[in-house]
Write a protein that binds this DNA or RNA. Sequence first.
DNA 1: CGAATAATTCATCACCCGGTGAATTTTTTG
DNA 2: CAAAAAATTCACCGGGTGATGAATTATTCG
Lengths: 245, 245
Amino acid sequence: MDMKVGRLRASGPKRKRGPGRPQKSANGDDARERILDAAENLFAHHGLDAVSVRDVARKAHVDTALVHYYFATKRGVFDAVFQRRAAILNKERIAMIDAYEAAPGPGGVTVEGLIEAFLSPLFDASVKGGPKWKDYFALIAQVNNNPDWGGETMARFFDPVIRHLIAALRRALPSARDEDLFWSYHFLSGALTLTFAQTGRIDLLSDGLCKSTDFAAASARLSRYIAAGFEAVCVSRSIVRKRTK
Amino acid sequence: MDMKVGRLRASGPKRKRGPGRPQKSANGDDARERILDAAENLFAHHGLDAVSVRDVARKAHVDTALVHYYFATKRGVFDAVFQRRAAILNKERIAMIDAYEAAPGPGGVTVEGLIEAFLSPLFDASVKGGPKWKDYFALIAQVNNNPDWGGETMARFFDPVIRHLIAALRRALPSARDEDLFWSYHFLSGALTLTFAQTGRIDLLSDGLCKSTDFAAASARLSRYIAAGFEAVCVSRSIVRKRTK
DNA sequence: CGAATAATTCATCACCCGGTGAATTTTTTG
DNA sequence: CAAAAAATTCACCGGGTGATGAATTATTCG
């Protein structure tokens, strides 16, 4: 009986910098990068399961075998796409929160200020960063709402930043309960990711008055909306809470 | 030349009540119903594209051909699942909004009261209605965040109720702009559907303090959270708006 | 140049997919 | 009971899927 023998080929070549490099290196037109871009775009717009490795390869003008050469498996492609922009983003977001806490406006640290610091790198990237960043955020929206492996994946990449935000919120709202903070963040997460998902939903609902792609409009409202939600839920209402619980 | 001839077989049998009925009819154990239940569960937990017709048939203890006999295509199965509970739900939600507007508490109609009327049939069904209803709501979460056809599908089934809610909110907040109302609803929609998606995300983030399955806890917070968001965004701040716009 | 190494392609495998037409079985009707 | 109709199964098709090993091309290094 021949059991399925595990793949021996490692996940891609040894990445030493020197020898045998591809056509272009300083340029962003490596085949590897093209594959990631193609996958990012397709996964974001159609979901992981609706896109085949062949689709990705075709869009990247590359043979399917090359995709497996670099990333071993389809899930490997996905992970690489997901990871590529996460690190940059997370560093910025933590820096923004810290900077705001170190020098808030007159009146001190507010919930809205913290939320805005937490969100601004995302909206900045999606507005100024070009379509690839928009694709990336749409991809995150997909993952965040995936019931299979979404929760685990999001936790792996984004929990540090989020815990950082929640710690800061805890300082800004000393009377808040942790459950209230976590649920409030959960609602924020849902509102944010649906906005990033660009489903065209709001376009249809509003008969064209609002556009899914108009992140500036979303950004102008979201921080205020969410901050008000946090304050309404997290600021001492223990009497009411006991009644509803 | 033989062009692909359209399917001649109609989408299922003639549904007259009399002849040739299956094993059980009054009971909910029809094969047709079993297929819908199986599909509902699988689509909700894994997404439409990750589930095959064979998976559904296997779970329903039925041949794949029977699935096509009743629903013609995989998408047909999905539509039937989606539609099955939508009508019931929408009728209840409109009734709740109307009832609340007709007899609000002392102090008149509030945003929180409207939101709660709008949401309560959902949480009621998911808490009291058993696991099939939870599956259904998880399925809605999938659809709402699907960038391909989610926006259009949600619009087709739920826009009437939502427009009804927004009309009521417009009466409760006469100074609100429509863009603000639509964006505010959009955020509500995202927060709600991520909650229904049951991704386990909040469980991991909170180290088990909060549970994705605890709809009672979510329900206890969501209306207040969202109402505060609506009021913060939609109540006259035209001076500020002009600056950010 | 020529050897070494990385990048890329080619041909292919075993399997799963959605869907269909023709039997076959079950149920209802007269 | 027989005839009719509905429900269900069986066998199958064409095509797509993720993945792989061997061959081929491009690049770098000595």
